[in-house]
Design a protein around this nucleic acid. Structure first.
Lengths: 191, 191
DNA sequence: GAATTTAGATGATACTGATCATATAAAGAG
DNA sequence: CTCTTTATATGATCAGTATCATCTAAATTC
């Protein structure tokens, strides 16, 4: 059955958002086109009216996930009394973020998947990483702009690595310890 | 056709090694049982004489990858004139390691895949991470053992995150910059 | 409000992949 | 040297999965 023009646009948005979440939860190969469409409440056949292929969807979903993620980081900067980098680390390294990969950082959720992906998906991710580094550079410590950029990249890496490790391990105490250790180290690097 | 007892044991080893490499290169879902067996030079049917399932293989392959990886780190510690942590970082954050995921760190290559994996695979990875942290703790800076462990975990996270980021991006200059930035920051954290 | 367009539904196709039943030929036991 | 065992090979099954052709009913358009 046909739906209105704006309903269609909304459906497309929901497909993208749903895909961005499902991919982060289960990985690219863990989610089928039909899974995404079913989660949205549509049937699989209509998919190719919106996207040219699953890869196309993946690339756009990655782009969307990065935009949301970088936006959340920008929000965290502003809010709260702490230093901006500490505010970001507190959110990023929280158990809540660890336990909800579907709505979290796409690098931690899909980093190694993206590294194996081709063309468009890699490009979208590269833009996202660039934007994230730029955002962090504005609040990283350091005398020169170069120093701040170096520090921003290293902090980004620490955040990502700690979250990946904390999600991998099968022991909650160790997982919490990893998050806490990264937070502590980022704090002392700040001075 | 049947092969000798030791030939069979050797075949099993080769299946494990091959799987450990292929999984790191292409991810769990990117490699089929038949792919592994073909790479070893056997046919797919014989697989279930060696392992009870693909998940079983995955768990054992992860264990093997961690042992090899931690061993390489231990070797790097001893060799060379630099501080041990710097020696490890130099190897870990080298373009050679970035460009050869199949023989490198299983966390950077499969971290997010493992996080989605169940049971045995997670357990094997947890042991591997624990061992890696222990190894790094012995050479990390800090007054108390606790400080050293915290520092070791954070350094581990920085290494992993930087490698993942460097593999994700589609721009070699940026990729190199990420590796260099993490190396620099680990060096200055050392003092 | 009739004619036209089209978003999404239905169903088919062509692959791929995990798992297993059975066959076979070579190893190891006697 | 024969008999038994068994590591692999062959081939089948069953379940998914991406993609596409076709249909249909509702939204636009005139």
């Amino acid at each position: 059955m046909r739906v209105s023009r704006e309903q269609m646009a909304e459906n497309r948005e929901r497909i993208l958002d749903t895909a961005a979440t499902l991919f982060r939860e289960r990985g690219f190969d863990g989610v089928g086109v039909a899974d995404v469409m079913k989660a949205v409440g549509l049937t699989h056949g209509g998919f190719y009216g919106h996207f040219s292929s699953k890869d196309d969807l993946a690339a756009r979903a990655i782009g969307r996930a990065f935009i949301q993620s970088n936006q959340r980081a920008a929000e965290a900067k502003a809010a709260g009394p702490q230093a901006p980098l500490q505010a970001i680390a507190d959110r990023y390294l929280s158990p809540a973020h660890r336990d909800d990969a579907g709505h979290g950082c796409p690098v931690a959720a899909l980093g190694c998947d993206i590294a194996r992906q081709g063309g468009a998906a890699r490009l979208a991710a590269t833009e996202g990483v660039r934007a994230a580094i730029k955002g962090l550079s504005a609040i990283a410590p350091g005398e020169t702009a170069e120093d701040r950029r170096t520090s921003a990249i290293a902090s980004y890496a620490t955040l990502v690595g700690a979250l990946v490790l904390s999600r991998m391990v099968d022991d909650e105490a160790l997982s919490d310890e990893i998050l806490a250790a990264a937070k502590t180290e980022l704090q002392s690097a700040q001075e």
